[in-house]
Computed example of a mutant assay.
Amino acid sequence: MTSSAEQPGADGIQIRDVQPQDRAAWERLYRQYAEFYKEPMNENILARTWSWLLDARHPLQGKVATTADGALLGLAHYRPFPEPLLGKEAGFLDDLFVSPEQRGSGLGRRLIEAVAQAGKEQGWPFLRWITAADNAQARRLYDGLAQATAWVTYDLNLEKGTRGV
């Protein structure tokens, strides 16, 4: 995990690394994130993901947006990945979620900027992420921060079998 944290803004909100005391609030937000993407969520997934976030030896890292009294308003999960064509590790933003009542407040941007700063500190040449094509609100934010790529993403399901494999 990185140790960087932004100073609280005028609104009293701080972006910082996830901490052990965040578990219950993080879980509420992460369940909402999974529900938004219509992904199943259960205690095993939550426990494993949380353990990864707190394990300094695991590549997954996390940032949260918190109020002065410690309430969580948003989260970001990210990790390094090898970029063979550059011979370097780059960054991948796996999950970004801001509570619905905070959308449009700039928290998503602040979370991405905090992850980007952590990536700079780790020597990453870029930060990459994907989103659903119909996630218009998020895409407005992303279009203002980063360059959309021409790459098309595929998932080969290794658990259910595939056609022709």
Rank of each mutant, 00 (worst) to 15 (best):
L72C: 03
V165Q: 14
W50F: 01
A65E: 10
N42M: 03
L141S: 02
V18S: 07
E159C: 02
Y33C: 09
V165Y: 02
A148R: 14
G104F: 00
Q7Y: 02
F81D: 06
G108S: 01
A34V: 05
Q122T: 10
K38P: 04
D134W: 03
A116M: 05
A68P: 12
T49P: 13
K38S: 14
W52Q: 14
D69V: 05
A148N: 07
S4C: 07
V18L: 15
P125E: 07
G74S: 07
Q19T: 10
H77Y: 08
T149D: 12
L46G: 15
L111N: 07
T2V: 12
Y154S: 00
R48E: 15
A138W: 00
Q32K: 12
P100D: 13
Y78Q: 09
R31D: 07
E83A: 10
Q102Y: 04
T153K: 03
N42V: 10
S99R: 08
D94V: 11
W124C: 06
A132H: 12
F81E: 12
T2I: 14
D94P: 06
W151D: 15
L93S: 13
G106D: 11
F92Q: 09
W50G: 02
P20Q: 01
P84L: 06
E43F: 01
L107R: 09
G108C: 01
Y30R: 12
R23K: 12
S99M: 09
L93G: 13
G108L: 03
G119L: 03
R31Q: 08
E121S: 13
R23T: 04
W129L: 13
P84C: 02
A24F: 01
